[in-house]
Amino acid sequence: MGTLVGHVAPGFAFLALGLWHLFNHIKLHLLHPNSYTSSPWFPTSKIRYIELFLIMVGSSISISMELFIGPEKHQPFDPDGTIPSNHLQNFEHSAISMTFFAYAALAILLDKTAPKAQHDLTQFLGAVAFAQQLLLFHLHSADHMGVEGQYHLLLQSAIVVCLATTLMGIGMPKSFMISFVRSLSIVFQGVWLILMGYMLWTPGLISKGCVLHLEMGHKVVQCSSDEALHRAKALVNLQFSWFLVFVSIFAITFYMFLAKFYHEKVEYSTLTKEFEPLESGSEDVESQKESKFGDSKSTTFVHLGKGY
């Protein structure tokens, strides 16, 4: 993962997943505002588990890249079977991918075997995946003390929001804002990973006074002085602030755009009650009905409720 492709590829995966969730949550809320209930994943009409299948495929590719394709020997171990220091990061990144793979696979099994409890348990699995991601990025084997460390520190703040909103969604499944913020935090995580990939491994985009340096088999950004380091970190903070504003503007604009196409479902039903001519012995009752309603036919429109 310590390369441009290693950050950009998972960044696009998180971005696509976040946009998919953001679209579906907004659509579901616009159509059923009163009966809205969040969903940890969204099926499609043709392939029900396409979202979960794609998560499993992406996680498998990530694990393969980290452990078998990326290393020069195409295997991550030393000749004596131990893990070399320069491959610790690969194992940490693959552990994150393994957790997301387990989330998707177990979500499918829960949907097939325990549909009544699948929402809470699937949300719990999602929280475990984000907690694993936060733990391994926070206790990363790489130093991450310089510019790269600042990027990873701010990335952890987005992961914290993902984790918190996922846990909150277990107890408050009808809260649209929790699902909205969780989807947006996944989008932001993807955008930030993409930015990290380009800003840390594109020589022309590295901050003034800093250069790419090979360290323990990985290229890292090193600054020539404390002043250059402080300047580079300040620029990272500015980038985070700008992207936070842009993503927030995008989210509200996206909501207003979808509001033009999806409207609350309100259905009406026509109930017609015809009074048949009664026997001669019931003429008095019929005359009372006619005097009360003014007509022997009464057509009523019944509103079935906004949140149907």
Rank of each mutant, 00 (worst) to 15 (best):
A102L: 11
I55R: 02
K289C: 04
G305M: 09
Y255T: 02
S179E: 02
E92I: 09
E279L: 07
S157P: 01
F53L: 06
K219G: 06
A9F: 09
A107D: 08
M1G: 09
G146W: 08
T253M: 13
F275V: 14
T113Q: 03
F293C: 05
Q133T: 13
S157Y: 06
F254C: 02
L229T: 13
S280I: 14
D284M: 12
S157M: 10
Q133S: 07
V236C: 04
L278W: 15
Q222W: 08
Y49S: 14
T272V: 14
S248A: 15
G11Y: 10
F101C: 03
G294W: 09
L109A: 15
F180C: 06
A158Y: 07
K273T: 04
G217E: 05
Y151E: 01
V57D: 01
K265A: 01
A228N: 13
E286R: 01
T202G: 00
T37Q: 00
S39D: 11
A117V: 15
S35N: 12
L235R: 12
V211A: 10
A164K: 01
L30G: 05
G70Y: 11
W192T: 01
K116T: 15
V128D: 05
L31R: 10
F250R: 05
I186M: 14
A129S: 15
D295N: 02
M177V: 11
S175D: 15
K306N: 15
L88G: 14
F91W: 11
F257K: 10
S248H: 07
K219P: 00
F261K: 13
S185N: 00
N86V: 07
F42P: 05
A127I: 03
A142D: 13
P277W: 00
L193W: 08
Y262K: 01
G307L: 01
K265S: 06
A102K: 02
L125I: 03
S179D: 09
F12W: 05
F176P: 00
A158Q: 01
Y151G: 02
F77M: 12
K306T: 15
S60M: 12
F246T: 11
L134R: 05
S35G: 11
K73L: 08
S280N: 14
A251L: 10
A16R: 04
F176G: 00
T253W: 11
L258K: 07
S241I: 00
G204D: 12
V220S: 11
M98P: 00
A158T: 09
L28P: 00
V57F: 02
S60P: 00
F77E: 12
L205V: 03
L4T: 10
S64C: 04
W20R: 09
V187W: 05
L15M: 10
H25C: 08
L193V: 04
G58T: 00
Q132M: 08
L193I: 04
S59C: 10
A127S: 14
H263S: 08
L244E: 07
S298I: 15
I206N: 12
Q288D: 12
S179P: 06
S179R: 08
V266Q: 11
S97R: 02
I252N: 06
W201P: 08
A117G: 14
